[in-house]
């Protein structure tokens, strides 16, 4: 099992690192889409053993939402805005990648000390899940544009899903579908908010919203 899913997990890690080091917003949106598709494949590979219908349903839904619908929504929010790149992030790109590596080392260490209620499909699954979650958090904190923060939120959610995959037959189907629906609504709302911020202020820098006073 580990032999089949390890390449996917490593690709997930590489996508995270690329997200940390990438400045083009279009590329970042595509990377998050790729991550969603990879997660779908991962869920399929891990779960197909014990309930094929459920696994196919969940993986299909997740791939459709994260690989097609979300990128469309985000690209649409991005389209009118005259920005192509995340300029002047709080933490630069090369330091971000290096910090990402430090986070990865940290998660490997933490998960080696973590006792799970049941064995994960691969020894990499838990560190990758934690690392993806941390990457998402980092993107939310260290980037300036609203759209990158939305992407960070998506990556964060991807990390939690990965963690769920590690222990998946514990969570009932309705919960997982509910999570997908929640994320869908969240991205929809955030897309509209980004759009409205841009309409009103001609930029989507969240730090400049701090000076707004009513």
């Amino acid at each position: 099992m580990g032999w089949e899913i390890d390449p996917i997990l490593v690709t997930l890690v590489l996508v995270n690192l690329l997200l940390l080091g990438g400045s083009r917003l279009v590329t970042c949106i595509r990377l998050v889409a790729v991550q969603g598709v990879l997660l779908g494949i991962l869920a399929l590979l891990v779960q197909v053993g014990w309930s094929p219908t459920r696994a196919v349903l969940l993986a299909g839904g997740s791939v459709l939402l994260k690989g097609v619908v979300f990128p469309r929504l985000l690209s649409r929010a991005l389209r009118g805005a005259e920005i192509r790149r995340e300029m002047e992030p709080y933490v630069g790109y090369t330091p971000s990648v290096l910090l990402g590596l430090a986070m990865l080392a940290l998660t490997v260490w933490v998960s080696s000390r973590l006792t799970l209620p049941l064995p994960a499909a691969s020894h990499l699954l838990v560190p990758v899940a934690l690392f993806t979650t941390l990457t998402g958090l980092f993107l939310i904190v260290a980037r300036r544009k609203a759209i990158t923060q939305v992407l960070g939120y998506l990556v964060l959610e991807n990390g939690i899903v990965t963690f769920g995959i590690a222990l998946s037959h514990e969570a009932p189907l309705s919960v997982e579908l509910g999570v997908l629906l929640d994320v869908f609504v969240a991205i929809l709302v955030m897309g509209i908010i980004v759009h409205n911020i841009r309409e009103d202020f001609d930029h989507i820098d969240t730090d400049r919203l701090a000076s707004l006073k009513d």
């Binding site: 490593v10 690192l17 080091g21 790109y93 990648v97 290096l98 990402g100 590596l101």
Partner: peptide, 16 residues
């Protein structure tokens, strides 16, 4: 950036 990327890939291999 590319060289740091290479170093990160190698470090990832060390962790793997």
């Amino acid at each position: 950036q590319l060289l740091v990327g290479a170093a990160v890939m190698a470090a990832l291999a060390v962790l793997l």
